[in-house]
């Protein structure tokens, strides 16, 4: 490889592992300096290419995934529903219900743990006061199939987050309660059968079936949550 060939190859692929390319660099001081210059330029170029990535890009990708799946379900053909229903019935007849009860309880337990863990992982959200959150809460609910028809409570924060349980996007809202901030999470998945209270040492909460998922309402132990749950049930209309 001569100097001209080397420089051409260097401008094509400065990181080339070609033996002749590496050998020429080791033998020719001028070409080694040229390669260093190209390498420096590539490094600077990489820095220049690294434009800031939006903080919530990953969350938005997950949200689009959920919305895309929802739209796909809506255009499913009737015969596909019939086929799915017959398969389900066959499985049910073979005694699957017992397992369903077991897995349903397990699912609820996991959900309770996951929502409390999520609140504890985002303590900064409890102190945020963003005046534009009321409108954003309505927009986020709409993305998940809910329409806000009545005010629930003063909304201090509304964001899309991902639950560690399955990394699926959730709506994370914080409102002002009687004794302090109350977190409301909307998590898509199997709705629970009825409103289910839960608590740990730090928080008390309620799981509320809503649309194609559940609302988890979580506050401090002495926070009266039932009035807020009532408002949520009356103030959001879900498109199923």
């Amino acid at each position: 490889m001569n100097c001209l060939e080397y420089r051409r190859a260097c401008l094509t692929d400065p990181a080339s592992k070609n033996e002749a390319f590496i050998a020429h660099r080791n033998e020719c001081g001028d070409c080694a300096r040229f390669a260093d210059e190209v390498g420096v330029l590539d490094g600077k170029l990489l820095d220049a290419m690294r434009v800031p990535v939006p903080d919530d890009l990953q969350t938005r990708i997950r949200l689009r995934q959920v919305i895309g799946e929802e739209q796909s379900r809506r255009v499913t053909r009737p015969w596909q529903f019939a086929l799915a229903a017959s398969i389900f019935l066959s499985v049910a007849l073979s005694g699957f219900f017992g397992y369903q009860v077991y897995s349903s309880n397990r699912y609820v337990d996991q959900l309770r743990v996951a929502v409390i863990e999520h609140v504890k992982e985002e303590p900064q959200f409890l102190t945020v006061q963003d005046d534009s959150s009321g409108q954003r809460f309505g927009q986020l609910l709409a993305a998940f199939g809910g329409e806000l028809v009545q005010d629930i409570a003063p909304v201090r924060l509304a964001e899309v987050c991902a639950l560690r349980k399955n990394y699926k996007p959730i709506v994370h809202t914080v409102v002002s309660g009687k004794t302090g901030p109350v977190t409301i999470l909307y998590v898509q998945g199997e709705p629970v059968e009825k409103v289910m209270p839960f608590r740990d040492q730090q928080f008390s909460g309620m799981l509320v079936p809503a649309g194609q998922g559940n609302l988890a309402v979580i506050g401090e132990p002495d926070e009266p949550l039932q009035p807020l749950v009532d408002k949520l049930q009356q103030g959001i209309v879900w498109k199923i």
């Binding site: 990535v53 939006p54 990394y167 699926k168």
Partner: peptide, 20 residues
Amino acid sequence: QDKFEILIQGLSADLYRYAY
């Protein structure tokens, strides 16, 4: 979902910059 999550966490920043 796990495969998809790996793609999101591992490649979304590079893909965004490329897209930009």
